[in-house]
């Protein structure tokens, strides 16, 4: 598992539950004191051990924790560069939703050995979509649920999202678009990072 993913998990746990909780989780999961390093590769077992330790220490339902991770990835101010990269998916929330099929390739464009989920977007009718995700680790659908809800807010769109089946190998979400221009949305200016 790419260190970037582990590092995101660590960043989430520290941001939401503090350094002390992280130290406890880290110690139970057998992660060295310096934590994860974004530019290194780790064994998937370590990622899972870290998540399981977090569930135990924080007394949270795994899905609730995963959903919070998804929200964190989009909304945490420290991860603004990531939100911006996601907004390159398209000018509207629907464009963004459809661009999820490119997510894996976009990830690889940025970091060649980054393994992001393989996502298919199925149109059920013009306002309903099923998102099918395949990833090496379980739990991608709840992460996407939190992330997509936050992205809908980011675009100012009103959408209903729910888990739509989790089997080993494939996890699904159901998205119903209610209003694409429900609210103002957060700013995204292409030239916003400066040269």
């Amino acid at each position: 598992m790419h260190g970037m993913i582990n590092r995101a998990l660590q960043g989430f746990l520290v941001a939401h539950y503090g350094e002390r909780s992280w130290d406890e989780i880290r110690s139970i999961a057998g992660i060295p004191p310096e934590g994860f390093e974004a530019m290194l590769q780790y064994d998937e077992a370590q990622t899972l051990a870290c998540f399981e330790a977090a569930v135990t220490v924080l007394h949270k339902h795994p899905n609730a924790l995963l959903e919070d991770i998804g929200t964190y990835l989009v909304t945490n101010p420290a991860l603004e560069p990531l939100r911006r990269l996601l907004r390159f998916g398209g000018p509207t929330f629907l464009d963004f939703l459809l661009s999820l099929e490119d997510l894996r390739d976009r990830g690889r464009l940025a970091i060649p050995d980054l393994d992001l989920p393989r996502i298919r977007v199925e149109e059920l009718d013009p306002s309903s979509y099923r998102i099918r995700a395949q990833w090496s680790l379980p739990g991608i659908a709840p992460i996407l649920l939190g992330g997509l809800r936050a992205m809908a807010d980011d675009y100012g769109a009103l959408a209903l999202l729910r888990l739509d089946g989790m089997q080993p190998g494939e996890e699904c979400l159901h998205v119903q678009l209610l209003d694409m221009t429900f609210a103002e949305g957060r700013q995204f200016v292409l030239g916003g990072v400066g040269a």
Binding site: L82, R84, L85, F88, P91, A110, L190, G191, V193
Partner: peptide, 30 residues
């Protein structure tokens, strides 16, 4: 893009400039 205040709708979907910008931002972060 910054000085002309261009946005996604200003480019043809076939134009790779957006992908270049995406890469530029990703590279900067990495």
């Amino acid at each position: 893009v910054a000085e002309f205040d261009l946005n996604q709708g200003d480019f043809s979907p076939c134009d790779q400039t957006l992908e270049l910008l995406y890469l530029y931002e990703a590279n900067t972060s990495i």
